[in-house]
């Protein structure tokens, strides 16, 4: 039996769309790990980028500063650092998916530490 070309086309598009939807967004970390990653960003990244991520010795990481930047290169910077600058790589502590979640979250406005604790 021959599948009509238009139907095939639709099927391929659907499959591609589904794959994109599944693969693009790194899953949001859960539970204790979620808390840990928020603290890692606020406290450890914060020692150079500021607890509020408004910048310090390192640049500001608020949505208005980074929302327009390419996601891939931001994730690569988090994982591997940026030679010639003070930015170290953090791949010893987080997975690539977690780095991607961090960058996406920063672009939207990064979550606060538990309650009012900063």
């Amino acid at each position: 039996m021959r599948i009509p070309p238009t139907l095939l086309h639709v099927a391929v598009l659907l499959a591609a769309g589904l794959a994109a939807a599944l693969s693009v967004e790194a899953a949001e970390p859960q539970g204790k790990r979620h808390e840990h990653l928020i603290k890692l960003v606020r406290q450890e990244c914060g020692s150079c980028h500021g607890l509020t991520l408004a910048g310090g010795l390192g640049p500001a990481l608020l949505p208005e500063n980074i929302a327009h930047k390419p996601l891939d290169s931001m994730v690569a910077t988090v994982m591997n650092g940026r030679p010639g600058t003070a930015m170290p790589g953090w791949s010893r502590f987080i997975s690539e998916d977690e780095a991607e979640w961090m960058v996406r979250s920063m672009m939207k406005g990064f979550p606060e530490l538990n309650g009012a604790r900063k």
Binding site: E44, S47, C48, L57, G81, A86, P88, G89, R92
Partner: peptide, 11 residues
């Protein structure tokens, strides 16, 4: 001494 520096996670 020309060695690769270790990462610095805090100044």
């Amino acid at each position: 001494r020309g060695e690769e520096p270790l990462p610095v996670y805090k100044m």
